[in-house]
Design a protein around this nucleic acid. Sequence first.
RNA 1: GAGCCGGUAGCUCAGUCAGGUAGAGCAACGGACUUUUAAUCCGUGGGUCGAGGGUUCAAAUCCCUCCCGGCUCACCA
Length: 496
Amino acid sequence: MLARTAQELKQGEDVVLEGVLTRWEGKLTLDQAVVSEGDAFDVSEVKEKYDMNPEDVEVSVAGRVITLRPMGKALFAHLQDATGRLQIYLRQDIMGESSFKDFEETIDPGDLLGVKGRLFRTNTGELTVEVKEWVLLAKSLHPLPEKWHGLKDVEVRYRQRYLDLIANEHARRVFFLRSRLISEIRRFLDSRGFLEVETPILQPIASGANAKPFITYHNYLEQNLYLRIAPELYLKRLIVGGINRVYELGKNFRNEGVDTTHNPEFTMLEFYCAYWDYKDLMVFTEELFSYLLNQLVGGLKITYQGKELDFTPPFKRYRYFELLEEKTGKDKDFFLKDVEGLRRLAKEVGVPKAETLTHAKLIDKVFDLLVEDELWGPCFVIDFPKLLSPLAKTHREDPDLVERFELFVAGKEIANAYTELNDPMEQRERFLEQLKEKEMGDEEAMSMDEDFIKALEYGMPPTAGEGIGIDRLVMLLADVDSIREVILFPALRQKI
RNA sequence: GAGCCGGUAGCUCAGUCAGGUAGAGCAACGGACUUUUAAUCCGUGGGUCGAGGGUUCAAAUCCCUCCCGGCUCACCA
């Protein structure tokens, strides 16, 4: 059922449109309602500017009517916009009988309203606009979600996010935080001399990560294109091209499951710095997080899901195989050489489908299952097996390992970084190993990219690079447990 | 893909176990009220109980199928 206003519109649009809009013709237009005396005010501006001394200040302000309290010949209401709420007060003897009566008859909760009037403070001390003139700026044909309980149905909150944003302040807070986080990341990287770039989202080969891509077809080029699963190989081409500090902030697309930590399109930050190695990046990461935490929450400690997280540097460092040995009693050689022994171990600890997994997957799954969830952190896991890292440089002290770290916070992988492999011959071999994995049934094994290898053949300086999952970072800072709470329009099945 | 939970008025929720005329608050509508703020007071209307099928004299309630969502698992490092 629609509101009374919708019924009115159905019965006779003329009544509402002429009755309301034309009445104000020549008196107060939308522009005048929002811009007056040289100032454009949103709700928070009015409050900030005049909260201390509201005497006799004339303001114009617009917002959505969120509550309405008629009291005979006077009326209180609250206007809301994304910045806050402001009370308005209407009196028949101030604005005139017909204007007051019109207001009562036409304005409902949910409508967008512009008002002009004098600021004052009520008996209870609330800053309030005493309205002289008003204008209906837009009608809401649907009633708003209930003012006290708000909107709770998560399906409606995701499908009609605008209602969530109107009704739930915590939703507004999360998305404002997300926006500020992204601004601060840019500010930090820009100040350190990084250049922001945009690389192709439609790529002839989807490589640079282990994931299944979305496929599309370009009619003019007459070829398949893939939505990128990572920008990595293009950003490293730019390092070859001499852009020594480079970053990209944008969407990646992976054609995989949807759950509380995965959305098919998600936001990644990747940045690369020539002449750095992964140790430099760990320090840089600590600096980045210190900066972000200080800017956004004003300190280095936050609470996530009831537990404290302390981002005071330095973060702890744990070696990959030391963590595994702690849990299993088995050393690196066991994991790298005794594949069948590892398979038995994997089955014992409950890795599903252990009998069909490749060597690399077995290591990875055992680590996931036994270690990952306990890494409350923040901490760096360093020195990963080469098998799992086809784009990372071989460790300077151990040919079985690569110079790679992942940053874990609250049991989640937040960042992944390594000293980049810049030897084109070795890169080709690593890709070939990935192709073997693919043949052995690992659908997510990385694709060969000859064009990228060609770029490496021109010489890529020693470089370190890092990727940070922005959605998961927002989840941490906002203290929410589902990625859908930090993505404005998360992927849902279409509803007919 | 599997298991569990959920879908009842515009919103927030009862009612389902144990079948018997579909409820409350807010919102809406009519009335009273010139400093209220979840305004208050009096009155009124409002339902494809997610969809379809079955059992029954009778289904929101029991059974089956399907749709949508949530959580867990699998998958996704």
